[in-house]
Design a protein around this nucleic acid. Structure first.
Length: 585
RNA sequence: GCGGGUGUAGUUCAAUGGCAGAACACGAGCUUCCCAAGCUUGAUACGAGGGUUCGAUUCCCUUCACCCGCUCCA
């Protein structure tokens, strides 16, 4: 299996072209010129996506006893996004440097002190001039020339040749200003808000009061309905709630085909676990993770770290099952990169033609989300753990105090987000009674990215000379059979022989209800194979004269099954054909 | 959001200030005993809006989309 060379940039273009030509992915609203950041799935893309979505759902819920599903609305109470932090963190004030056009976050600019020089314009060496005002800061200790140099760059960027700025003979002293770029002292634009959440209004009147957001992630719905699920579905800790659905982000710059788009589909699991302290009280210890740890079956003494590693292993197995095993990579976020509430986060990356990019993030988020919602909605979201209450009742005061002291020490060692001693004691008081907010492991995957990843991985082209010695390029989509949009093509060897056609229609009828089959009689047999290769169909069956019994009774009612990869042909009885194929998907 | 590039048929590409062409793909017919064969035949395009001009797909402006680099990516 050859993969396209990295140094060949048109690979992505070839994939985009194939996606459109064969009906996988189209530009949204294309007849009106398209709309930036939105993509539609055509007939084959819809099947592919459905297959991916269903394999995820099957692996996450149906094949497990400890995960249930949820299907929540896209528009939810705006307070959810307040509690989650999205209203604040999704609206970053941004400024642009007037010289380099670099965009910076206004709240992250280091305050500068020094002298500001104001220029009213500039004259160019060729007689042209500019009357655009500009100011630059010479940091404390730097001469006026430093500001002058920046001003020259500013006017030069606006088309003036060798510009001589006008004005700015004397400077004004400023202290701790964030209006200038720390890198070069250039004036910055006024801060502008960039809100990454898409907004709408509920009800007939558009007003501030009825603003609603299209969800920027599906996860928050799970937290918001966590209590209902606990109360209604008899789940016991640990357990998970998963959801597949659309999410929306007003990306400033959508890029790379469907990889970063404004409307996309997420597949998220929130797996709720007992806090490590509860595990220790119940089991006497918390299992320590090591490279050789057995992650195959969950154990009672697993803390967050084992559970996190377990889900990384589970998700890895999933990617292997859809044929991405060889192209995924891991990136473990460093302590500095982690959000303050997160304990660990690993990105599962995949090799795309445009680089190795994130497919899924698996975060250990502690109890941050539920505690935020508990605080904002004012309703207790604690889980009552009878087993924990019983175990805690057997602890002596000294043992309890040892646990508390250990936690206090751990909190004091934190650089940010540490709990006070009083908060720790209050938390343990609830814990010893059997109450806690569960911690959460969150594997969060992007369905559209996954679809793009499997297409990119499967895309294969090779050169071949045809019967006339003419070279041609053959395209094959080597999709894993389990996700291929069409599972089997059914062809009569010749379409002008009614017996063959009738038999082929009969075989097609046997298959179509059980797997996605495609009937084709147009063109030479080789062309029909090629058409199926290009859309990733793993099997083709051909009805020939042997099927009709013309070559002897032993071959009657057998068909040729041709495999996409390798082209191997096998004769299979029509009676067992559906089973034969299904066992190979 | 900034800078650069590109928009012609389903795809990949031509040509042109005066009737827009090819290859492949697609449809129909013939032919063909297994990997894009051949013959006949058919349908299909100048991203959108404005300007200049007797006349614009072509020149100019605006806009939209796509690609590359920067930026952004809770």
């Amino acid at each position: 299996m050859s993969s396209p060379a990295k140094s060949e940039p048109p690979v992505m273009e070839k994939i985009v072209s194939l996606c459109k030509r064969r009906g996988f992915i189209y530009q949204s609203s294309e007849i009106y010129g398209g709309i930036n950041g939105f993509w539609d799935y055509g007939p084959l893309g819809a099947e592919l996506k459905r297959n991916l979505r269903e394999s995820w759902w099957r692996a996450m819920t149906r094949e497990r006893e400890d995960v249930v599903g949820l299907d929540a609305t896209i528009i939810m109470h705006p307070a959810i996004w307040k509690a989650s932090g999205h209203v604040d963190t999704f609206a970053d004030p941004m400024v642009d440097c007037l010289v380099t056009n670099k965009r910076l976050r206004a709240d992250q600019i280091e305050p500068q002190s020094g002298m500001v020089y104001r220029f009213t314009g500039a004259a160019g060496a060729d007689g042209a001039s500019s009357s655009t005002a500009f100011s630059a800061l010479a940091p404390a200790g730097k001469p006026r020339e430093s500001a002058l140099k920046t001003a020259k760059a500013f006017y030069a960027a606006r088309g003036l040749k060798d510009p001589e700025p006008i004005g700015g003979e004397t400077g004004e002293k400023v202290e701790n200003s964030t209006a200038y770029n720390p890198e070069n002292g250039a004036e910055l634009t006024e801060p502008r808000m960039f809100n990454l959440m898409l907004k709408t209004h509920t009800g007939p009147v558009e007003s501030e009061e009825n603003i609603a957001y299209l969800r920027p992630e599906t996860a928050q719905a799970i937290f918001a309905q966590y209590k209902n699920v606990v109360d209604s579905s008899r789940v016991k800790m640990p357990f998970g709630i998963c959801q597949i659905g659309k999410a929306f982000r007003n990306e400033i710059n959508p890029r790379n085909f469907t990889f970063r788009s404004r409307e996309f589909e997420q597949m998220e699991l929130e797996f709720f676990i007992k806090p490590d302290e509860a595990i220790e009280i119940i089991s006497g210890k918390v299992a320590a993770w090591s490279e050789s740890a057995d992650l195959s079956e969950p154990q009672d003494d697993w803390g967050w770290e084992m559970w996190h590693r377990y889900w990384v292993a589970q998700r890895t197995a999933f990617y292997e099952s859809i044929g991405l095993g060889k192209v995924i990579h891991y990136y473990w976020q460093s302590k500095e990169e982690l959000a303050h509430y997160a304990r660990a986060c690993v990105d599962i990356l995949c090799e795309f033609p445009f680089g190795t990019e994130e497919l899924e993030g698996i975060a250990a988020r502690g109890d941050f989300d539920l505690s935020q919602h508990q605080k904002h909605c004012g309703k207790p979201l604690e889980y009552f753990d009878e087993e924990l209450k019983t175990a805690a009742a057997k602890l002596g005061d000294e043992e309890k105090e040892a646990l508390i002291q250990r936690r206090i020490a751990a909190e004091q060692a934190k650089e940010k987000g540490a709990l006070s001693e009083a908060e720790v004691r209050a938390w343990f008081e609830r814990l010893f009674k059997g109450f806690y907010l569960p911690h959460v492991i969150e594997p969060s995957a992007g369905l559209d990215r996954m679809a793009l990843a499997v297409i990119a991985k499967a895309f294969d082209q090779y050169e071949k000379t045809d019967g006339k010695g003419k070279p041609e390029t053959i395209t094959v989509l080597r999709l894993h059979p389990s996700i291929a949009p069409v599972k089997v093509g059914v062809f009569p060897l010749l379409k002008n022989k009614p017996e063959l056609v009738a038999k082929a229609r009969e075989v097609f009828g046997l298959l179509k209800g059980r797997l996605n089959a495609f009937y084709d009689e147009a063109g030479a047999i080789g062309r029909r194979y090629a058409r199926q290769d290009e859309i990733g169909t793993p099997f083709c069956v051909t009805i020939d004269f042997e099927t009709l019994g013309e070559q002897g009774p032993e071959l009657a009612d057998t068909v040729t099954v041709r495999e996409r990869d390798g082209g191997a042909q096998t004769r299979v009885k029509t009676a067992g054909l559906a089973g034969w194929l299904l066992s190979r998907l």
